[in-house]
Amino acid sequence: NQESVVAAVLIPINTALTVGMMTTRVVSPTGAPAEDIPRLISMQVNQVVPMGTTLMPDMVKGYAP
């Protein structure tokens, strides 16, 4: 099972992602793949992402898996 990126903390809208904001988990439906964490760092979210929420590609500005 592939791990997806999950918010480790509450991420406010327009916040640039840091490694400490993200964790990985096997979830369904799958979100952004765990191996993309290095690409996701410094990208901004376009909505509030509550802690424990799977990071879906459409939540991150300019990100395409």
Rank of each mutant, 00 (worst) to 15 (best):
Asn1Leu: 13
Gly62Lys: 01
Val9Cys: 13
Leu17Gln: 00
Thr23Gln: 08
Ile13Asn: 12
Gly31Cys: 02
Arg39Phe: 11
Leu55Glu: 02
Asn46Arg: 08
Arg25Asp: 08
Ile13Gln: 12
Leu10Lys: 08
Thr53His: 13
Ser4Ala: 00
Val48Lys: 12
Pro50Cys: 10
Ala16Asp: 05
Val6Tyr: 05
Thr54Phe: 06
Ala8Lys: 12
Ala16Leu: 13
Thr53Trp: 14
Ala16Glu: 11
Val9Lys: 07
Leu17Tyr: 07
Thr23Trp: 10
Asp36Met: 08
Val9Gln: 11
Gln47Trp: 09
Ala16His: 13
Val45His: 04
Met59Tyr: 04
Thr24Gln: 08
Val49Ser: 00
Pro57Gln: 04
Gln47Tyr: 08
Ser4Gln: 01
Gly52Glu: 02
Val5Phe: 05
Met56Tyr: 06
Val27Phe: 03
Leu10Tyr: 14
Ser28Pro: 01
Val19Ile: 14
Ala8Cys: 09
Gly20Trp: 15
Tyr63Met: 04
Asn1His: 13
Pro38Phe: 10
Pro12Trp: 09
Ala34Gln: 03
Arg39Thr: 10
Val48Gly: 03
Val26Gly: 04
Thr15Trp: 08
Pro33Gln: 03
Ser28Gly: 00
Glu35Lys: 14
Ala7Leu: 07
Gly52Trp: 08
Thr24Met: 08
Pro50Trp: 09
Thr30Lys: 15
Met59Val: 01
Met51Val: 10
Pro33Lys: 06
Val5Glu: 01
Met43His: 10
Pro33Asn: 02
Asn1Val: 14
Gly62Arg: 02
Met59Thr: 01
Gly20Pro: 08
Met56Arg: 07
Met51Asp: 06
Ser4Pro: 03
Met59Trp: 04
Thr15Gly: 06
Val27Gly: 01
Leu55Lys: 03
Ala16Asn: 11
Ile41Trp: 03
Gln44Leu: 11
Met22His: 06
Ser42His: 12
Leu55Thr: 00
Ile13Met: 13
Pro12Met: 09
Arg39Cys: 11
Arg25Leu: 09
Val19Asn: 09
Ile11Gln: 02
Leu40Lys: 01
Pro65Asn: 10
Ile41Met: 06
Ala16Tyr: 15
Ile11Val: 03
Val60Ser: 03
Met22Glu: 07
Arg39Gln: 10
Tyr63His: 03
Gly62Tyr: 06
Leu10Asn: 13
Leu55Asn: 01
Pro29Val: 01
Ala7Ile: 08
Ile41Asn: 00
Met51Ala: 14
Gly62Thr: 05
Gln47Cys: 14
Ala8Val: 08
Met43Cys: 14
Gln2His: 13
Asn14Pro: 02
Ala32Cys: 15
Ile13Cys: 12
Gly31Trp: 04
Thr23Arg: 08
Gln44Trp: 09
Pro33Ser: 05
Val45Ile: 05
Val60Lys: 03
Glu35Leu: 12
Thr53Pro: 01
Gly31Asp: 03
Asn46Cys: 10
Pro50Phe: 10
Pro65Gly: 11
Val48Phe: 09
Ser42Glu: 01
Asp58Ile: 08
Ile37Glu: 03
Met21Ile: 06
Val49Thr: 04
Gln44Ala: 07
Gly52Ser: 04
Ala7Ser: 05
Thr53Ser: 12
Val45Pro: 02
Val26His: 12
Val45Lys: 02
Arg25Ser: 09
Ala16Pro: 13
Ala32Tyr: 14
Leu40Gly: 02
Glu35Ile: 13
Met59Ala: 03
Met51Thr: 05
Thr15Phe: 09
Val49His: 02
Asn14Thr: 08
Met21Ser: 06
Leu40Ser: 04
Met43Ile: 06
Lys61Phe: 12
Val45Ser: 03
Ile11Pro: 03
Pro57Leu: 09
Gly20Gln: 15
Ile13Gly: 00
Glu35Tyr: 15
Gln47Ile: 09
Tyr63Trp: 06
Pro65Cys: 11
Gln47Phe: 09
Val27Thr: 11
Pro38Asn: 10
Gly20Leu: 13
Gln2Ile: 14
Glu35Ser: 15
Glu35His: 15
Thr24His: 10
Asp58Lys: 12
Val27Gln: 03
Met21Asp: 07
Met51Ser: 10
Glu35Met: 12
Thr30Pro: 15
Ala7Pro: 01
Asn46Glu: 01
Gln47Thr: 11
Val6Lys: 04
Asn1Pro: 14
Val5Lys: 00
Gly52Leu: 07
Met56Glu: 03
Ile37Ala: 03
Thr18Lys: 11
Asp58Glu: 14
Ala7Lys: 01
Val49Trp: 05
Asn1Ala: 14
Val27Ser: 03
Val9Trp: 06
Thr54Trp: 06
Glu3Pro: 12
Thr18Ser: 10
Met56Leu: 10
Ile41Tyr: 02
Ala64Thr: 15
Ala7Tyr: 08
Thr23Ala: 10
Pro29Lys: 01
Gly62Leu: 05
Ile41Leu: 11
Leu17Lys: 02
Gly62Trp: 07
Val60Glu: 05
Met21Arg: 02
Asn46Phe: 09
Pro50Asn: 08
Met22Lys: 06
Val6Trp: 07
Asn14Leu: 09
Tyr63Leu: 02
Pro33Thr: 00
Val9Met: 12
Val48Asp: 15
Met21Gly: 06
Leu17Met: 04
Thr54Glu: 01
Val26Asn: 11
Val19Lys: 13
Ile37Asp: 03
Val48Ser: 14
Ile11Leu: 04
Ile13Phe: 11
Val60Pro: 06
Val5Tyr: 00
Leu10Cys: 13
Lys61Val: 14
Val26Tyr: 14
Ala7Gln: 01
Thr53Lys: 11
Asp36Phe: 05
Thr54His: 01
Ala8Glu: 03
Thr30Met: 15
Leu40Ile: 05
Pro33Asp: 01
Ser28His: 14
Val60Phe: 06
Thr53Met: 14
Val26Arg: 13
Pro12Gly: 09
Gln47Arg: 13
Met21Trp: 07
Gly62Ser: 04
Met22Trp: 05
Ile41Ser: 04
Ala32Thr: 10
Gln2Tyr: 13
Tyr63Thr: 01
Met21Tyr: 05
Ser4Asn: 01
Val45Tyr: 05
Thr15Lys: 03
Val45Asp: 02
Val45Arg: 01
Ser42Lys: 07
Glu35Val: 13
Val6Asn: 00
Leu55Trp: 05
Ser28Gln: 13
Pro33Val: 06
Val9Arg: 06
Thr53Phe: 13
Leu55Arg: 02
Ser28Ala: 11
Val48Asn: 15
Ile37Lys: 00
Val26Glu: 07
Pro50Glu: 11
Met59Ile: 02
Thr18Asp: 07
Met22Ala: 07
Asn1Gln: 14
Val48Arg: 13
Thr23Asn: 08
Val27Lys: 01
Asp36Pro: 03
Gly52Phe: 08
Asp36Val: 03
Pro57Cys: 09
Val49Phe: 06
Thr53Ala: 15
Ser28Ile: 12
Thr23Gly: 07
Asn1Gly: 15
Ser42Cys: 11
Leu10Arg: 12
Thr15Glu: 04
Pro29Gly: 04
Val6Arg: 00
Gln47Asp: 02
Asn14Lys: 04
Gly52Ala: 01
Met43Asp: 03
Thr30Trp: 14
Leu40Tyr: 01
Ser28Phe: 15
Tyr63Ala: 02
Pro57Trp: 15
Ala8Ile: 08
Pro50Thr: 10
Ile11Thr: 04
Leu40Trp: 05
Arg25Ala: 11
Pro38Glu: 10
Asn14Trp: 15
Pro33Gly: 00
Leu55Cys: 05
Arg39Ser: 06
Thr54Gly: 01
Asn46Thr: 12
Met59Gly: 04
Val48Ile: 12
Ala32Phe: 15
Asp58Gly: 13
Gly62Val: 02
Thr18Gln: 11
Val26Phe: 13
Val19Thr: 10
Val27Trp: 09
Gly20Asp: 12
Ala64Pro: 10
Thr30Ala: 15
Thr54Ile: 06
Val5Ile: 14
Met21Phe: 07
Thr23Cys: 10
Val27Leu: 02
Asn14His: 14
Met56Val: 03
Ser4His: 03
Leu10Phe: 13
Leu55Pro: 04
Thr18His: 00
Pro29Gln: 00
Ser4Thr: 05
Ile41Cys: 05
Val19Glu: 12
Leu17Trp: 06
Gln2Ala: 12
Met21Glu: 06
Leu17Asp: 03
Val27Glu: 06
Ile11Glu: 01
Thr54Arg: 01
Thr24Asp: 07
Met21Leu: 03
Ser28Trp: 14
Val48Pro: 11
Gln44Lys: 15
Asp58Val: 07
Met59Gln: 02
Met51Pro: 10
Gln44Tyr: 14
Asn46Gly: 02
Asp58Thr: 12
Val49Tyr: 03
Thr18Asn: 05
Pro29Trp: 07
Gly62Pro: 05
Ser42Thr: 11
Thr24Leu: 10
Val49Asn: 01
Pro29Ser: 01
Met56Gln: 10
Leu40Asp: 01
Ala34Tyr: 04
Val45Phe: 02
Pro57Tyr: 10
Glu3Met: 13
Lys61Leu: 11
Asn14Phe: 11
Glu3Thr: 08
Ala16Val: 13
Ile13Val: 13
Thr30Ile: 15
Glu3Ile: 10
Asn14Cys: 11
Tyr63Gln: 05
Val9His: 02
Gly31Gln: 01
Ile41Pro: 07
Ala16Thr: 11
Lys61Met: 12
Ala8Asp: 04
Gly31Met: 04
Asp58Asn: 14
Pro38Arg: 08
Gln2Arg: 12
Val19Leu: 15
Met51Gly: 00
Thr15Ala: 12
Val48Trp: 12
Ile41Arg: 00
Ala8Thr: 11
Gln2Phe: 14
Val6Glu: 00
Val60Ile: 14
Met51Lys: 15
Asn14Glu: 05
Ala34Phe: 05
Glu3Leu: 14
Met51Arg: 14
Leu17Pro: 00
Gly62Met: 05
Pro65Glu: 10
